[in-house]
Amino acid sequence: MSLSSRFENIEMAQHLCGKLLDPENLSDETRHWILMALREALANAIKHGNGQDRAKRVHLEMDVTARILRIHVRDEGEGFDPEKVEDPLAPENRFKTSGRGIFYMKTFMDEVRFQRAEGGGMELFLTKNLAGGKEKEEKGS
């Protein structure tokens, strides 16, 4: 699907993603963190990618099986170099008011991969392994 570049649309996408996730297969906790990662991905596409230009779209694909969730987000912006993103845990960045979104995505998902999209913009692939997730967590606690 594609969304216009408005922050209000983040919630709608989160809602849809939530519907795709089977509560039998994963804990509320895992679900919460997946939806937070999705929120951060879309916020970046809307803000940094498309510069909140409503004429630009954010393209979102979500695929889920019992084993894995894949989220693909593409914006229509200039793209960026993920190597240049600063570490929010570095002491000099600790008190910054921004720069934590990608870190949260990496913390809560199993894979976070950026790629420059053909024809400009940035593509982001987020993956979460779901297989046996709930069982594993319950055993662990």
Partner: peptide, 11 residues
Amino acid sequence: IDSSGIGELVG
């Protein structure tokens, strides 16, 4: 809360 909200708290 998201990273922007956290950023605001820090600010």
